[in-house]
Design a protein around this nucleic acid. Sequence first.
DNA 1: AGGTGAATGTAATGTTTATGTAAGGTGCTA
DNA 2: TAGCACCTTACATAAACATTACATTCACCT
Lengths: 221, 221
Amino acid sequence: MEELIYIVEDDEGLRELYEGAFEGVYKTMLFENGKDFFCQFEKNRPDLIILDIMLPDMDGYTILTKIREVDEKIPVLIVSAKSDEISAVKGLNKGADDYIAKPFSVLELIARIKTNIRRANLYVKSQRGFVIDNNVYKIFFEGRDLGLTLKEFKLLKMLIAHTGVTVEREELFREVWGESFMGETRTLDIHISQLRDKITECGGGDVIVTVRGIGYRFEAQ
Amino acid sequence: MEELIYIVEDDEGLRELYEGAFEGVYKTMLFENGKDFFCQFEKNRPDLIILDIMLPDMDGYTILTKIREVDEKIPVLIVSAKSDEISAVKGLNKGADDYIAKPFSVLELIARIKTNIRRANLYVKSQRGFVIDNNVYKIFFEGRDLGLTLKEFKLLKMLIAHTGVTVEREELFREVWGESFMGETRTLDIHISQLRDKITECGGGDVIVTVRGIGYRFEAQ
DNA sequence: AGGTGAATGTAATGTTTATGTAAGGTGCTA
DNA sequence: TAGCACCTTACATAAACATTACATTCACCT
């Protein structure tokens, strides 16, 4: 689980509120302005973005527009002190996924985050640079298509779904190849080997760890 | 355009408000209770559902849960008089896509509807030069009639309806040929091949992508 | 330490399967 | 009976997958 959220907020009080509220629930990164945010955003995409409308360098709408130019799917939640409806309409029309007015309740904020991530994850899941797109049966690392075959796709998807947990060889077999677990064969190893090659080609590190005698584990640094 | 919205609302005042607000913008159907709603919902699904929490027969949460059992994608917007945050959290946790408290502003309501439909449509529409005319059973690319046969029409329509999403061979069979999925036959491939020919003849690109082992996908670049 | 065997890595090769498509057949409709 | 839509057959092809064979690594034993 442990989704990654980027928060663009300059108000010190709110920054602390966010940090407290998300402690242990979501992994967060805070940015004071649009410039810092985009610097990081280009490197690694989060699962959701919380955007304050009033910021020192560029206003939230500008940031939102720029985000939508490169990613029309990522959930963006707008936060604003202006509780008038004009702000809400403007933000939503520009492609925000949700809007919440200050002062807001932490409970509702979390519920809204949950909903927006749930919705986005129906189609696409991501895990530290790896993005699984179930619509097109592809997995990307930092935007690059790994070019996986069906078996490879299922295998890596399975491993990523259990990030940090070792998955037994037999379980992998059952899930990827079907019920018929065919005794002794090296097929699984070969596919893992292929996967590693393809991940390396796309600049990924040693994310598939061998657990001798047990199986394999996906490890995001 | 002209999206279809189902509204479940028993309060007469609000019913009139909705009808006025959506006049000419969206096509609407109003239901007084959950039973009527489901009767219609089973026959034809709308683009979005507006759900009042307080209803005579079953409450909105029950309806929401039942909707989510059969369709986890359709956007559901909850409306409630209870402006306390507990309602919002409850609704969103049960799988609502959005929440709006009475009394609400019509402007914001429409903005939220727009956002929710936009989001849902990200994965469903966007035809890129392809126009489907259901009245005459024809599909045009950049104004040119592709000259499709009925099966080809249904097939391409189905693929376009799921733009960006891979549709499984079996699903295509069920939808285009009917329930009788006839084991092993090459008919589907031949029709796809025909479709590709006709699209190419009319200047269309490689819009039908093969997903080996799964099915086909319509892709608008 | 160093040796040993089992488990795993992987290159190369062989096999299977899914799909593309041409050509011709069948049966309906006008 | 001509024309059309649709299906089947048949073969070609390429991708995916499995197997073999040998190399390497690691855990464990002495």
